[in-house]
Design a protein around this nucleic acid. Structure first.
Lengths: 243, 243
DNA sequence: CAGTGGTCTAGACCACTTA
DNA sequence: AAGTGGTCTAGACCACTGA
């Protein structure tokens, strides 16, 4: 394995994490190619002055991420690229970052409104209490791609937050309120006349829909998102693994 | 924590796995409620005569599955049910089992055909070489729900396989050829006239589409699936976690 | 047979939380 | 101050693979 790993024992970053991060980087930029054999646990442990369980924890993290494949008696290999591609997108962080980073996003509405029954139930607050309501349109060039509605508890985002430059989730991260887990429901529907007008399609055109419930580390609901995507311009990729 | 765990030290099943499975069962059938505190690692280790790392491995597996939440200085808790519901469906096994188990599935076609360019590329075989082609219709009562097309390498499934009683994936498991990872792409489209006729909707009606590429443990492609679902009857739930 | 990863033990020190 | 999970070590035995 022709990759060197630099461990900083003075760093607060765990050793196993330093190792897994650097291996992941090597896999992603091609220094480790699909099918390449990784050094054995014993070799790595000796080479970097670590114990075997520490090396093992680094390897196991990459196996869980789907980047490495290990078999007893065989060794550890980088998985084939067709399997690997976009396997990382099951991470909430990547998913949210991407949904902010896309081409251009216009804020149509950012207001404080009374929670209706559905919003109140999802956010676990009392019906009629105030929530922030955000309505955005994502475009690529002149083409509208997605119509996104979001509702958030009032203490999660301030009314004068800058949601334009960095995006919603980037803003939440700066306030330390970033989502930890999320449930998504993906479906399809025919465009209503409102959606058709905003997304510049004909009424009844197929739309891809996504509803997201996001939660912080304590399990408290912090976001309800209801998004509609043009079917001809958008798809979701997910990856499944046997556990 | 009012749950007892029975460990069989003579079993080939790892101790950490016995423990995590029984805790998962307790969480899923309600014996452990959302928010319930789990015994600490030290308590569990002492109670069952295990070392702390072994207990820890069991806990960590359930954290990775999204069933438990741990915080330093706080302890380990069962996650809130709203977060937890269907979090397990990110497992390939559950997903494939469910797609077999659904109400009634009719095999429309099961044949050996020549691979076209797209099938050949996905399955990494030579264009024109034989592949098994499977066409199924899933119904609930009289209602058609999904139109499913699958292509598989000839050595993965024999031409006289029984795909009716157990389903495709159950059959693959019996032959030891079960999928290990899969990539799914979920989108939407308007029904073609063929799809409209099979699914009993009008032409142009919104359909939810799913394309799956499945791989075995070695990373070899073993299935291409192209499915179309009635949008009014079907949705995908996915769950994301910060890692 | 030698080498691999899979499991398990018995410790240790630390950062963080609550009280 | 006491208790929690997070990290790390230095061993051990085993099942599986390939030559």
């Amino acid at each position: 394995m022709n990759v060197d790993i630099a461990l900083d024992r003075g760093s607060p970053v765990p050793l196993y994490f330093q190792m897994s991060q650097q291996l992941q980087a090597a896999i992603e930029d091609g220094r480790l190619a699909p099918g390449d054999q990784i050094d054995t646990e014993m070799v790595l442990a000796e080479k970097y002055g670590l114990s075997r369980p520490t090396v093992r924890q680094a390897m196991q993290d990459l196996v869980n991420k789907g980047l490495l494949m290990r078999r007893r008696g065989i060794g550890t290999q980088v998985v084939h690229s067709q399997v690997r591609r976009q396997l990382g997108l099951t991470s909430l962080y990547d998913d949210l970052r991407d949904s902010d980073r896309r081409p251009s996003t216009t804020v149509l509405t950012f207001d404080t409104v009374a929670a209706d029954e559905r919003v109140a139930e999802v956010l676990q607050i009392v019906e009629g209490s105030p929530v922030r309501y955000l309505e955005r349109l994502r475009c690529e060039g002149d083409e509208p791609l997605a119509y996104m509605q979001n509702w958030l508890p009032v203490d999660i985002v301030s009314p004068d937050a800058d949601l334009v430059s960095g995006g919603l989730y980037a803003h939440l991260r700066t306030t330390g309120q970033s989502p930890h887990t999320a449930k998504q429901r993906i479906g399809a529907k025919a465009a209503t006349s409102v959606e058709a007008r905003v997304l510049d399609v004909r009424r009844g055109a197929p739309l891809l829909t996504m509803e997201r419930h996001a939660f912080d580390v304590t399990g408290r609901p912090i976001e309800l998102g209801v998004h509609a995507y043009r079917a001809d311009a958008y798809a979701f990729e997910t990856n499944l693994m046997e556990r």
